[in-house]
Nucleic acid binder design. Sequence first.
RNA 1: GCGCCUGUAGCUCAGUGGAUAGAGCAUCGGUCUUCGGAACCGAGGGUCGGGGGUUCGAAUCCCUCCAGGCGCGCCA
Length: 553
Amino acid sequence: MIKNELSNLIERAATTAQERGILPHVAIPEASVERPQLPEHGDYASSIALKLARGARMKPLAIAETIVSVLPSSDAVARVWVAPPGFINFVLDDRWLARQVETILEASTSFGHVEIGNGHTVQVEFISANPTGPLVAVAGRGGSLGDALANILNAAGYKAQREYYLENAGSRMEAFHRSIYARYQQQFGIEAQVPDEGYHGEYLTDLAKEILGEHGSRYLDMPAEEAAPALGHIAMEKIIAGVKEDLARLGVHYERWFMQQQELFETSAVQRVIERLRQGGFLVEREGALWFTSSTLGEDKDNVVVRSNGIPTYFAADIAYHYNKLIERGFDRVVNIWGADHQGHLPRMRAGISALGIDPSRVTFIIHQMVTLKRGAEIVKMSKRAGHVVLLRDVLDEVGADACRFFFLSRSADSHMDFDLELAKKQSAENPVFYVQYAHARIASILRLAQDRGINYSGGDVSLLREPAEMALIRKMLYLPELVETAARALEPHHLPHYAVDLATAFHQFYEQCRVISDDQPMTAARLKLVAAAKTALANTLCLMGMSAPEQM
RNA sequence: GCGCCUGUAGCUCAGUGGAUAGAGCAUCGGUCUUCGGAACCGAGGGUCGGGGGUUCGAAUCCCUCCAGGCGCGCCA
């Protein structure tokens, strides 16, 4: 990557300068180069001289001049200069830039990939809801984030695995069982009540009817303590099937579905991890329950792991789950993507991980903020209690998977987001989804035309590319690997959609200014190569986002 | 009350301690219509919530106040 090459050049120059005694022997900071905001400042700039000034007791400008004076030359760089107050600016060479078109074409689907992961394994867990109902719209945010993040990590040289933690045990599921049982009974005119803490959505009535059709009245004759779990199990399977279907429509595919009940409880993994905590001296009995003394690990309070009724809490199961991920399955790193409503769970989980002797830096929590659904200026009201929620499948029906992913991805996880259904489904210039996909379709159309005319551009000479708009497009394409690296390091997929728009803009500008297919055959061939490279860069970007790259629209 | 997140253009949002804070939409004004006009070009629009501090340099880091969101169960 050119960015890294430039920082290497600077670091080598600084070292050389020290060896020659023209720069004091002070520690040289990592010579990161940045992309200046103004084109007059070049393609890349380094502020290393400003950072060295204090320690070296020299004026930043003098340091910069010194470094530049011994800077090794590079065929990628056309011009280097020093600018006040002490920046070193670089402009890339046009001929070198033009050659990158070939590099991009050769790299093809792996253009944009970088090697910073060293093959380390990362487990990315996201959505992970109780299977008590269809996925709600917000699941689209976790799903889009998690899936794109896994894509980014894979592109950055990690081995990422997507996982859905299916929380099919615990008190929420019991409430679900009682709810479906009540709905089932109601089908026979029995006056049963869905419990207050249960699930009141209409979908359970529908499910009850469906189950009645398939299994008849047999559960009516059973005692409630048998019928409820039995019905609950059938209903849960249907719910899970629906969840998988919704996710498939969103384009999210998991490598692993982890079953809480079967893999943590039935294997006694939860019991074993509680035992470990006990042996570590982290448990005390109080008020009939078993408490994890997280307050000794810096948490502000202790937390119950086994209730006074003898049933372990979700927290206990989650510690066992992390033991499973980090010790038994041995992932190098784990990334958990949770909604803001689970934020309170985070400190005790950190404490739990520490108590197991696991290096906490192996686990990263991404807490994404809430989503407000809107139609234009109007906020779509949701009341979970009454069962009035907007489902993920509703959003998919209304705006489609691509728009859904683009919008969910385009906000950083930290910010609360407004999702405007009205805007997302608009097929116009207002909608960035179409703007980006249109660019891809337009590119495809040019290449189709070339093919129809029997133009073979494989021998095209890219050194003919000289126009500013051509160079600007190449520069923008070359940013993709940098972006993948940044996004992978920071675990921030939200940069992708913004880049996609920028890249599309660079292409549209090129298209307006440069005629691709013309009577000038050599130029036609060169530009077709550029167009093909742009297609690669744009398609790879869309692919990282989990979006389709349409050949036509 | 305590914890986490947020506050940047009319709206929705970017912005790895660096140079004159950006984009899209909206508004206004333009574009030889041969490759897809779902495009392009231009203009206006900002005390980066307020106030302190650290730094050569702060939207970015620290403190404080204000406003909004989410959490603070032997729920998950």
